[in-house]
């Protein structure tokens, strides 16, 4: 796909190429990607739509110049990141995030079944050796599985986990935005990691040998 369709490339590439990089096809691709991401984290189509629209508008009407497509995406993502955290913070004020209850309890129960009564691994559920995970990260299908595993996380778990790992907030910022204690924060993050680990093992890394 040429991203210069709407604006022919000048003979010499200027330092500032904003006009050249922003064509409709590129903007709709960015919009689609960011929307998928915001939806995955917020689990609310209307909120995600608003956040992405605002971020895109701010980026494209801010009179800024971008040196490339990646720079523009990074800028949009930076704005979107703030908007997502703001939305989570606002919602946490009216509907406090609980570390327990609902879907989260189901995840905890599923996690508990991995262990024997003495809290050591059930032999059948002991984490297996994953064969060449680095190679997996280069396979397109791995990312579909990863996406599906993320989608299976309950809403609050996903919001907290993605603030930590995708928006790369430190734990104190995550706890503050979600309005929860550090201890509950750790509970939720551990729950998310264990669920994702289990999902990836079951859905992707099935060929590994289980240790005895």
């Amino acid at each position: 796909m040429s991203y210069h369709r709407a604006h022919p490339r000048p003979a010499r590439e200027p330092a500032i190429v904003t006009a050249a990089i922003i064509d409709d096809a590129f903007v709709s691709q960015v919009r689609r990607d960011m929307l998928a991401f915001a939806q995955l984290q917020l689990r609310d189509a209307a909120l995600a739509e608003d956040a992405v629209q605002e971020a895109l508008t701010a980026a494209l009407t801010g009179g800024r110049d971008f040196a490339g497509r990646s720079a523009l995406k990074t800028w949009v993502f930076g704005i979107l990141r703030h908007k997502i955290v703001d939305l989570i913070r606002q919602q946490a004020r009216t509907t406090p995030i609980s570390a327990f209850g609902g879907d989260d309890d189901d995840l905890d129960q599923a996690f508990d079944t991995l262990f024997r009564e003495n809290a050591h691994w059930q032999p059948a559920h002991r984490p297996a050796q994953w064969l060449d995970p680095e190679a997996s990260l280069q396979e397109k299908h791995f990312w579909s599985v990863f996406d599906a595993c993320l989608t299976h996380l309950p809403k609050n778990t996903a919001r907290v986990f993605m603030m930590r790992e995708f928006l790369e907030l430190d734990t104190a910022e995550v706890c503050a935005a979600a309005g929860i204690s550090t201890s509950n924060c750790h509970v939720i993050l551990h729950r998310a990691r264990s669920a994702l680990r289990g999902c990836l093992e079951k859905s992707w890394f099935v060929a590994g040998e289980r240790p005895c």
């Binding site: 960011m34 990646s70 995970p133 990260l137 990863f146």
Partner: peptide, 20 residues
């Protein structure tokens, strides 16, 4: 090890989102 893979994957996901 799986936690390390998970963190790398999360970063990879973000890189893909931001890739040109």
């Amino acid at each position: 090890r799986h936690l390390r893979v998970l963190r790398t994957a999360c970063r990879g996901y973000r890189e893909q989102l931001l890739g040109g």
